[in-house]
Nucleic acid binder design. Structure first.
Length: 301
RNA sequence: GGGGAGAUACCAAAGUGGCCAACUGGGGCAGACUGUAAAUCUGUUGUCUGAAGACUUCGUAGGUUCGAAUCCUGCUCUCCCCA
């Protein structure tokens, strides 16, 4: 049997963690977590990271291996997973990967193009340009430096514009020149079983999970991280809302309502992303046996 | 009991004779996405339609007018003040 990565995408709160543990236990393999916020060890509660009991059942990788102050990125994740996988496949012909970070998942399954690192000073330069000249300034600059990308980028999105500009300037070549839009060859097979649920059911589970986070001490966890609120890792549902509660801008009740709402939105966004991935076979997450039997029969093919 | 204010689409809230199917915000729904991605951004939101367009809306029942969410009258309800 060819080495196979069993990928389980699914919206937040759908029940990926439990299912992945069940599956990996049966297959006797370990789990690669693909959740860009569960990477951080200081953010266990708000990201609903697997707890000690769950972690003791199956070996997990990429849970809590970073500090919020560490720099990390999609391409580093791709590199780290590619480095780790051979050793995992040496122990088992299958490996389970689950999580909610769409781009990170794609990076592992299809690869990211090689794009050079940027000079932080260049990023600051364009951030400053955005502040002083607004989106229009970024557009003018991009139109000049990378007309090809300009013609297809979302011209309303400052992040995308600044990113393209900083790459172009740092590398001395247009950003678009680095984009190949071809999937990278992998020496293992990838099969995808998407976990979803009926929308109302998913929303109910999200609400319950937010309640559980509060019981487990989300407020205290967020409070302990308030000094790091400016870091990217903390620009995360569950923490942002708590910070504005600490600021006195909203009540705790409002913060909780916002966390629920923003989590639902995130779930929808995830579904939108995966919607265009025709290689995902979708299942109702409650159909554990059905999913497992599909995976087992697919592995034999 | 007396006086005043108001009832607008899922919610809030503009509109005070034609440019109104109705500003705007929220929410909902949909979409984009190549190292900030749980981020960042976009569209749409009365009904039917692919669209042009048609049809039904602004508490309710009438009326005035070529024409009403906008003016008049009755009714219902809500809020505030005085008793």
């Amino acid at each position: 049997m060819k080495n196979t990565l069993i990928v389980l995408p699914g919206p937040t709160g759908v029940g990926k963690t439990d299912f992945a543990i069940e599956l990996a236990s049966r297959l006797g393999c370990s789990i690669i977590s693909c959740d860009s916020r569960q990477f951080y060890r200081e953010m266990k509660i708000g990201t609903a990271a697997p707890d000690d009991e769950q972690l003791s059942k199956v070996k997990h990788h990429f849970i809590g291996f970073l500090s919020v102050t560490d720099y990390y990125s999609v391409s580093l994740f791709e590199r780290d997973v590619m480095t780790l996988l051979p050793s995992l496949f040496a122990k088992s012909p299958v490996v389970v990967m689950t999580g909610g970070s769409m781009l990170y998942m794609d990076a592992v399954c299809r690869g990211m193009d090689d794009i050079p690192d940027t000079d932080p000073a260049v990023r600051l330069k364009y951030l400053e340009m955005y502040r002083t000249e607004g989106i229009a300034g970024l557009r003018i600059a991009l139109k000049m430096l990378d007309p090809a990308y300009y013609s297809r980028v979302d011209l309303h999105n400052p992040r995308r514009l600044m990113r393209a500009l900083e790459i172009t300037e740092s590398a001395g070549r247009p950003y678009s020149a680095f984009l190949t839009s071809t999937a990278r060859e992998r020496d293992f097979r990838v099969i995808r079983a998407g976990l979803t649920r009926e929308r109302g059911e998913l929303y109910r589970r999200i609400d319950l999970r937010v309640e559980e986070m509060l019981r487990k001490g989300l407020e205290a966890e967020a409070a302990s991280l308030i000094a790091f609120r400016g870091l990217n890792a903390l620009n995360t549902v569950g923490y942002r809302e708590m910070f504005s509660y600490f600021d006195g801008a909203i009540t705790l009740e409002q913060a909780v309502a916002l966390i629920r709402r923003n989590t639902r939105r995130y779930a929808r966004k995830q579904l939108t992303w995966w919607n265009r991935d025709s290689e995902i076979n979708w299942f109702d997450a409650s159909d554990t046996e059905r999913i497992i039997s599909w995976i087992e029969s697919t592995l034999k093919l």
